[in-house]
Design a protein around this nucleic acid. Structure first.
Lengths: 235, 235
DNA sequence: ATTCGTGTGTGGGCTATCGCACGGTGAACA
DNA sequence: TGTTCACCGTGCGATAGCCCACACACGAAT
């Protein structure tokens, strides 16, 4: 992946990329690059925040644990966002479990450094306020979507969201994992993924998923996907 | 209700009650008291915010419309909160439909006045930041709850939340309305409410609902109720 | 080559909820 | 006093998704 080598870290997170150069450089200077490992739990609900993370080519799912077995995914954070956003609200308690869904690099910063940057940089503050708003929209949409839409459409939506945040057309995903993310049993995923595969939209084999027909997937997904995208776009 | 008469308006909204006296008085001086009417739509998603509202003895449901027929309730705002909170994030677009669920009075303030108070009063800002965090927790919890818990438990939870925000033990609620709130058919409510009534927890007759056994309702509700309460408590 | 583990597909019975349609009942109003 | 209407209860077939169990496929390691 040659693009990785020539990209300066500062431009790799799209949220940070929107900052004025001075603010961005000062912030990035206080970051270190870390590798996030697939299926790692980066933060657990209720813990104290110690670091914030700006994903570069990794992405992370936000999950509300329910009855200590199942989970419910309420949002996804890739290079368009950050983890630890609640510090903007002056709360240092993690609100959701953060599960790494696509491994890769991220910029990490200590809580203290971030808080002090937040006080210092008005553009940073404004940017993250907007991001918080989008995240809230996503939370509400996730609930509504799960309530009303069929598994197949939700799966398609979820794959699109991952695709947007992943690097290529392939990602590693077991059905077990997908079931956990979507709050369904594995068997349900087998059926829905089978249907998408039969339509030629995806290829699926032993944990390796390939997006074959993105436009088709968009047609198969519920409108929630567009709504989410629009929310980000108007940010 | 003699307590109403002796309460100064400034202490009637519990959020405002937590402000230092000076900040609170300045803010309240810029408010006018309005009456919210049951089943009114106070704000619609996508609209511009013109006023913010601090419920006093009214309460309001936040709803994400889905596919322009159904709705999905993502939160509830009573005297412990406010409407128009997204102005704190510098966004003046309404994120959810706000449907008045319990009629009553509220303090209203223009957007401009609120924004200028927000800039001026650091305690106000800090308070609302916290409130936003709690609201986000509520959004996520609502999604998870709807996904995993049975209607009966959710109904119990919802009644408790209304009870906390209403004045007495009785409120006016048609099953149709309840169905809309919980994203279910009316018939589903008939069954669930019938079960709660058979257990002696509530009385229900032609749109008039009475909470008979609050402790019993708490036992019938899912854990989400406690989680929500704790979130408010630790705010 | 056998074994073993991880990941995937299939089948049967079950429940919550849906969609629709119809019957009942109380209160308000003429 | 009778009508009307909003509200509530019921019944029935359909279905998405649940739980449990088992069978199959591929790859890696012994």
């Amino acid at each position: 992946m040659p693009s990785r080598a020539i990209k300066a870290p500062s431009s790799s997170n799209r949220l940070l990329a929107r900052l004025p150069r001075i603010d961005r450089n000062r912030l990035v200077a206080q970051c270190e690059e870390v590798q996030l490992l697939e299926s790692d739990v980066l933060e657990e609900r209720g813990e104290r925040i110690r670091h914030v993370h700006f994903p570069v080519d990794s992405f992370v799912s936000l999950i509300t644990p329910v009855d200590d077995h199942a989970g419910f995914e309420v949002g996804m954070v890739g290079s368009e966002g950050m983890l630890g956003i609640s510090l903007v609200l002056d709360v240092d308690v993690v609100p959701h479990r953060a599960l790494v869904q696509g491994g890769g690099s991220a910029l990490r910063m200590t809580k203290a450094a971030f808080v002090s940057e937040l006080k210092r940089s008005a553009p940073l503050r404004r940017l993250l306020d907007r991001y918080l708003y989008v995240l809230m929209s996503q939370l509400a949409q996730a609930g509504a979507c799960t309530r009303f839409h069929l598994l197949e459409a939700r799966l398609a939506r979820w794959l699109l969201m991952s695709h947007d945040r992943a690097l290529g057309n392939e990602f590693h995903l077991t059905q077990e994992f997908l079931g956990y993310m979507l709050g369904m049993r594995r068997v349900g995923i087998t059926k829905a993924a089978g249907a998408l595969q039969a339509m030629g939209l995806i290829g699926y084999s032993r944990g390796n998923l390939t997006v074959l027909d993105r436009a088709g997937l968009e047609a198969a997904a519920c409108a929630c996907y567009r709504i989410d995208c629009d929310a980000y776009a108007t940010m």
